[in-house]
Design a protein around this nucleic acid. Structure first.
Lengths: 201, 201
DNA sequence: GGATAAGCGGACCGCTCGATCCGCTTCTGG
DNA sequence: CCAGAAGCGGATCGAGCGGTCCGCTTATCC
């Protein structure tokens, strides 16, 4: 499809790798709003070198986020969980964890509409997985019947945002809110594994 | 305390009122990031006229948000609710509704740390009210015992953010997520009034 | 009605950011 | 080894922002 003109010069290949590595870290730490100059500084290159490989900053962002999403998806296997309830919870836990650890990924997931088609495709794939897990959980009666897959997306991104804000003061504190989401604010509803986890400490 | 130099000229008073009105609408619609030029345009004045009354954009924002918060607080009376559960829910519903209708208010509430002391004071007052309502709800056993007032703040702002994003496509759709928060994802936990509301349609 | 201070607003400044330009350097194939 | 292409990066542009300046207008008070 893409006609590869020719191989990059060796030093250019090295610079490209450093750019991608620096961008990955910088985007993860500071979100999609990091300025290109900061990434160039971390990579030890001039900003023009970045724009020679990526036409726009958005292109670089998409490349980095797409790569990270593919890695995550490749190593994930929620279907292997012991029961539909913990499978669904595992999915949400993973998705939120990724976003808390990578603010640019979070930004990209939050911008559901009008985002880049490449990310859109991956996003849709993840939603499809979520749909299957949700169907199974619904059939097993471990979640309310009126829960839609869009609800999971919305609630997942919301908890991710909570978690990102909470992370400096209470690392991992977002799991508590995933508990609340699963069990609810009301008392005596501890039906999921989160209630057991809370008992265990 | 503040030594009032003298009354504003009549036309200046009029302009100040137009600035405040325009800023209120613009901030509510577009959030705290609206540029001053846009507010000036809407008010039909030059941008310098705004900066003559408010030293910084932040001052204008705080003045507008503070006024709106005071109005909201003045007309609210959650303590009058019939039971502690609906009082707490009414409080959250109001808080979230305000933020969904006023994006600058939402931005200000979300920026909990390092925000202006004037807003901080009002924020603390609201948290105090929430604390009293939560205590009552806990005593009445209508919420889980480990729920803290900080949880309410965090979850409230999260749902507000959900709602703001959802508002164009599904106005009022955030109430569904307040339901889920109260009842939980798990089935058979419909103890609050939200379950009754869902039954009623 | 006129003197005068108060008020006005468009032009402007300084800054940041994404993106481009161009003279210089460095890798590479023959 | 060397010609020439490929690559490099600091300087620079242009747009958008918050905030300031200054010559002109207008309300106010006697």
């Amino acid at each position: 499809m893409t006609t590869e003109r020719r191989a990059l010069r060796r030093d250019a290949q090295c610079n490209l790798a450093r750019i991608l590595a620096a961008a990955r870290v910088a985007f993860a730490e500071l979100g999609a709003d990091v300025c290109v100059a900061e990434i160039a500084r971390r990579a030890g290159v001039g900003n023009a070198t970045i724009f020679r490989r990526f036409a726009t900053k958005e292109d670089l962002l998409v490349a980095v986020v797409e790569a990270r999403l593919r890695e995550h998806l490749a190593e994930a296997c929620w279907e292997a969980a012991e029961d539909p309830g913990s499978a669904l919870r595992g999915y949400l836990e993973a998705m939120i964890g990724w976003q808390v650890e990578d603010r640019a990924l979070m930004d990209s997931m939050a911008a559901r509409h009008g985002c880049d088609p490449r990310l859109r495709e991956l996003h849709d794939a993840m939603v499809e997985v979520a749909g299957r897990l949700l169907d199974a959980a619904r059939s097993a009666q471990v979640v309310r019947q009126d829960l839609e897959v869009e609800d999971l997306v919305v609630l997942g991104t919301a908890i991710a945002r909570i978690g990102a804000g909470l992370e400096p003061s209470a690392p991992g504190g977002w799991r508590r809110y995933l508990d609340i989401l699963f069990d609810g604010v009301s008392p005596g509803s501890g039906t999921g594994r989160s209630a057991a986890a809370r008992r265990a400490g």
